[in-house]
Amino acid sequence: MSTVPLILDVDTGIDDALALLYLVSSPEAEILTVASTGGNVPTAQVAANNLAWLDLCGRPDVEVTLGSEVPLVGELRTTEDTHGPQGLGYAELAPSTRSLAHRDSATAWVEVARARPGEVVGLVTGPLTNLALALRLEPELPTLLRRLVVMGGAFNHPGNTTPKSEWNVSVDPEAAKAVFDAFSAAPPERRPLVCPLDVTETLEMTPEHVRRLAEAAGSLPAELLSEDDPVGRRSRTGNPVLRVLVDAIRFYMEFHREHGHGYIAHMHDPFAAAVALDPTLARTRRATVDVELTGTLTRGCTVADWSGMWGRPANADVAVSTDPDAFFDLLIERVGAHLCL
């Protein structure tokens, strides 16, 4: 099996945590560095989550860098109501005893890409701030990277932050625009692959998925989440990684129920992680993507020109569909097997 060298840029975050675990569980994933971006929670908390979660998942060797504390323009907005006070729902992680890397996240993007030109896949599951800053240091990143995979945007789908904008883009629209503009220079076979809400909101993790994952991990007692459970019930499994994951996912399911989605959890970021390793999991359509910055009602909206009306070359391959059952089967198999070790 050939390896996929990866730069990860995350705002951990419940679904980011599962994305990290999925990659740790995937033998072909070569995680070179993990960048921390403020988004779901502030940047320092994201970095602390990354260190502690990677330690618990058995990867204390992976470098974690600290990224920008603010977007390119304006104040940072965070969403603890969605992800909990520390970003991981009801879960509590023991603080890591190791330190962050000396280099910052933007520098890590540049140095890792330069060290292995044409090999490295960048995966961003949070705001694009660090990558936008890295492009200021190294404008050739679009040709140095093998590919970029982004979880973000909404096209023929409502937003989840405003009626027209998705969270990651909405936090730092200027960064998103800078990235899409810069990656217009990427050759067609290296166009960014964008995983928008149009697809990721079809990936609904249910209590049955959690039960199957725990069963695959050999967990006792069984993890039987129910919307009839008391709010905030905690996992009793003896597996410490699974316990954190289930306590995080329960919070996420309660949030989705409160907002009218049912007792489920949209798994945006694990899907993007899976696509970074295997792009065939998504059916894509090429487009020219841009980001609205000045609209009174539409700031942060991602706009796709599917038909070439702007007369500009395509700069993205946008995921338009996937097989949710196949994705969850893959996730449960990989993560379950890893947790059994």
Rank of each mutant, 00 (worst) to 15 (best):
P192L: 06
P192V: 08
P192H: 08
L193D: 08
C195L: 15
C195K: 07
P196C: 08
L197C: 07
L197A: 12
D198R: 12
T200L: 01
T200P: 01
E201M: 07
T202V: 10
T202P: 10
L203A: 01
E204M: 13
E204S: 13
E204W: 08
E204G: 09
M205L: 15
T206V: 00
T206D: 02
T206P: 00
T206G: 00
T206K: 00
P207T: 01
P207W: 00
E208G: 06
E208I: 03
H209G: 00
V210G: 03
V210Q: 07
R211A: 10
R211H: 09
R212E: 06
R212Q: 09
R212K: 08
L213P: 00
L213Y: 00
A214P: 00
E215N: 10
A216F: 05
A216I: 02
A217E: 03
A217D: 02
G218V: 05
G218P: 00
G218Q: 04
S219H: 12
S219V: 12
P221I: 02
P221V: 01
A222S: 15
A222D: 14
A222V: 13
A222I: 11
A222K: 14
E223L: 09
L224S: 14
L224E: 15
L225Q: 05
L225W: 01
S226P: 01
E227D: 13
E227P: 10
D228F: 14
D228R: 14
P230G: 03
P230C: 02
P230L: 07
V231D: 11
G232K: 08
R236N: 12
T237K: 04
G238C: 01
G238M: 06
G238L: 10
P240I: 05
P240D: 09
P240C: 08
P240S: 10
V241E: 06
V241K: 05
L242R: 08
L242F: 08
L242G: 02
R243Q: 13
R243P: 05
R243E: 10
R243I: 03
R243V: 03
V246R: 07
D247K: 08
A248H: 04
A248N: 09
A248L: 08
R250T: 12
F251M: 14
F251T: 12
Y252L: 12
M253D: 09
M253P: 11
M253A: 12
M253Q: 14
E254N: 11
E254R: 14
E254P: 10
F255V: 11
H256D: 06
H259D: 07
H259G: 09
H259N: 14
G260F: 07
G260E: 10
G260A: 11
G260D: 12
H261N: 15
H261A: 15
H261G: 11
G262E: 11
Y263W: 06
I264N: 01
I264S: 01
A265H: 04
H266I: 00
M267E: 01
M267V: 02
H268P: 00
D269S: 15
D269M: 12
P270A: 03
F271D: 00
A272E: 01
A272L: 03
A273G: 13
A274R: 15
A274L: 15
V275E: 11
V275K: 13
L277W: 04
L277I: 05
L277E: 04
D278I: 04
D278T: 07
P279A: 11
P279R: 12
T280K: 13
T280W: 07
